[in-house]
Simulated assay, not measured.
Amino acid sequence: MSTIRKVGLVGWGAIGRVVGTALAEGQVPGAELTCIIDNRPLGDAAPAPQLTFEEALERCDLIVEAAGQGVVREWGERVLASGTDLLVASTGALTDEDLAKRLLAAGPGRVYFTGGAVGGLDLLQAVRSFGPLDEVRLTTTKLPSTLEQPWMDEELLTRLRTATGPVEVMSGTARDVPVKFPKSTNVAASVALAVGDLDAVRVRVVADPGAAHTRHVIEASGAHGAYRFDVAHLPDPGNPATSQVVPYAVLRSLAALAGRTGQIL
C-alpha cells in the first residue's frame, strides 16, 4: 500500500497558490495538501489550514518552500532535523556554501531542489561525470522593473527606468549574483548546483524594456561537447519576477517525490 505524502506549503504567493490549488484538487497522486505556512492571514480563501511552522512539522512529512531564500536560511535545518523532507524552490539560498553544507549534512529529513525555470540541468550533471566543464555562461534577461533592488544607486536605477533597449545590470559568478537579486536569479544557483561549482558559472543579468518573455540562455563547453539551452517564459502576471512555469516545475518535482511512475527522471 502506497504512502500519501503529507505536504506543508510555505508561501501563498504566485508560486504557492498554483501549487497549493493543484494539491488541494488532487492533481498530484500520492500527495495531499495538509497545511499552509504564511506570515500573512489567508482567511477562508486558503484550501487548507494555516499553521505555524512548528505545527506543520508535527503533521507533515514534506515541506515545500515557495516563499523565498530567507525561509531556507531560517528553517531549512530545523525542517530536516525534525525528520521532515524539504523541497526547495529558492535555490539561490544555496550560494551560501556554509548553509548548503549544513543542509546536505542535516537529517534525518532529506533535502531536494527543483530546477524551476530552466532545463538541461540533468544533462549538465551527466556531462560533469566526465570532468569539469571548461566554460559555463548564463545570461538572464528580464523586464527592468523586476530587477530593481534596494542596493542600487540612483545612476543605475535611472539607467533601468529610462532604458530603450537591453542594459547589462550586473555580471559576476553564480556565487555573487543570486545574493544581489534574491527573487530573480535562482536559475543561476540551479545551474551552479548542476555544474558543481559556483565560481565556474559566469552570469550576466540584462534588463530589457521590450522583453515580453523572461529569457535564460545557458552555454557550456568542455572536452566532451558543447551545449546550449535557450528558454523564454511568460512572466507571472501577478509577480513578473517569477516565470509562469515555476510552480509547474515544483509540481513535477512533487509528483516525483510522491512516486508517480512513467516519467523521465
Rank of each mutant, 00 (worst) to 15 (best):
R5N: 00
R5K: 14
R5T: 00
R5M: 00
G8P: 02
G8E: 00
W12L: 09
G16H: 08
V19Y: 00
A24Q: 04
V28E: 00
T34V: 00
I36Y: 01
I36R: 00
G43W: 09
A48H: 01
Q50S: 08
L51S: 06
L51T: 12
L51Y: 12
E58G: 02
E58V: 11
C60D: 00
I63T: 01
E65R: 04
E65F: 04
A67I: 11
Q69W: 02
V71S: 08
R73I: 11
E74H: 14
E74L: 15
W75E: 13
G76R: 03
E77T: 14
T84C: 13
D85G: 00
L87V: 06
L87R: 04
V88C: 07
V88S: 06
A89F: 02
S90G: 03
S90P: 11
D98G: 15
L99I: 05
L99H: 02
K101C: 13
R102M: 08
L103D: 03
L104Q: 13
L104I: 09
P108L: 00
G109C: 06
R110N: 07
R110D: 04
R110L: 07
Y112V: 09
G116S: 13
A117L: 09
L121F: 01
D122V: 15
R128Q: 14
R128Y: 04
R128H: 10
F130E: 14
F130P: 06
P132V: 05
L133R: 06
V136S: 04
T139H: 03
T141N: 05
K142I: 08
K142E: 15
L143V: 12
P144W: 05
P144Y: 02
S145R: 11
T146E: 06
T146L: 06
Q149F: 07
Q149C: 07
Q149A: 13
M152R: 06
E154N: 13
E154P: 10
E155L: 12
E155N: 08
L156N: 04
L157P: 03
T158G: 08
T158R: 14
R161S: 10
T164W: 01
P166K: 01
P166F: 01
P166V: 05
R175W: 11
V177L: 09
K180A: 15
F181A: 06
T185S: 13
T185Y: 06
T185P: 03
T185G: 01
A189R: 09
A189C: 11
S190Y: 03
V191C: 08
A192W: 11
V195S: 01
V195M: 06
L198R: 07
L198Y: 08
D199A: 07
V205Y: 03
A207E: 01
P209N: 04
G210W: 07
A212R: 15
H213R: 15
T214K: 12
R215I: 12
H216R: 09
E219R: 12
A220N: 03
G222I: 02
G222K: 05
A223M: 11
H224L: 15
G225D: 04
Y227C: 14
L234M: 15
P235K: 05
D236L: 09
G238F: 02
T242S: 10
Q244W: 13
V245P: 06
V245G: 00
V246F: 12
Y248L: 15
Y248T: 07
Y248M: 12
S253C: 14
A256R: 14
A256H: 14
L257D: 05
A258C: 05
G259C: 02
G259N: 02
G259P: 05
R260Y: 05
Q263E: 15
L265C: 10
